[in-house]
Amino acid sequence: MNYTPTVKAFHELTVNELYDLLKLRSEVFVVEQNCVFLDQDDKDQQCHHLLLYSEDQLVGYSRLVPAGLSYQEMSIGRVVSSPSVRGKGLGRVVMELSIEYCQKLFGSGDIRIGAQTYALGFYDSLGFVSDGEVYDEDGIEHIEMVRKN
């Protein structure tokens, strides 16, 4: 499958791109994971957004968070892939691009994430290591992980 990545600051997003990313986040985080939470947390405006398209469909997304907004370190959040393309390695593509663009946008440094515990092996394979205790976030077990630069 051919993917086209786009990375934009919030103010650069088109109305359609913003709609697409909010729709995909809601489809997975709210509907699929049956998780009632306020996705719009007033951080999007200060972040960059990685959008991964296949033809004209948004199939992958992540939020690239500058240091000091969510954690002391820069961060990657709201990582999501469309259910329509699961099992094809898209999650790895999204994360590898997210790591690359964090370094380009924010400079060299560690990256911290809040990972769902079921995905620990996946994040381990990308160089992240657990850092802290398991915690509940919106009814789903998470743990912070750090990728040292």
Rank of each mutant, 00 (worst) to 15 (best):
Q45N: 15
V7E: 08
K104S: 10
L22T: 07
S75Y: 00
V7K: 09
L105C: 05
T6N: 04
P66I: 05
M145G: 14
E133Y: 09
K23L: 15
L52C: 12
E32L: 04
T117N: 09
L21T: 04
T6W: 00
S26N: 03
Q33Y: 03
L97Y: 02
E73A: 14
V31D: 15
S70E: 14
S130A: 15
Q46M: 10
S130G: 15
V146C: 13
D44F: 00
F128L: 08
V85D: 11
E96C: 10
E12S: 07
F10D: 06
I140S: 12
N34A: 15
G114A: 10
L24K: 03
L51Y: 08
G121P: 02
C35D: 01
G87N: 13
L120K: 11
S26G: 05
S82F: 00
N2M: 05
P83G: 14
G60A: 05
G91A: 15
Y3W: 08
V7L: 04
L126T: 04
T14N: 06
V85R: 15
E27A: 03
V15P: 06
Q46V: 07
K88N: 15
R78Q: 15
E55P: 01
Q40T: 03
Y71L: 02
N34C: 13
H11C: 07
E144T: 14
L51W: 03
V31N: 13
F29D: 02
V65I: 12
K43S: 15
S130L: 14
D41R: 05
S84D: 12
R86E: 11
K88A: 13
V7H: 02
A67N: 02
I111R: 11
V80D: 01
V7F: 00
I99D: 07
E133I: 09
H49Q: 07
L52G: 01
G77L: 05
N2Q: 07
G87W: 06
V79N: 02
V85G: 03
Q46H: 14
Y61Q: 13
L18Y: 13
G121M: 08
T117V: 09
F29Q: 01
Y19I: 06
L90Q: 10
R112I: 04
S82I: 00
S75G: 10
V30E: 01
T117C: 12
L51P: 07
D41L: 03
V31Q: 13
T4G: 07
L21M: 03
V15N: 12
V30K: 07
Q45M: 06
V80A: 00
L24H: 06
I111G: 05
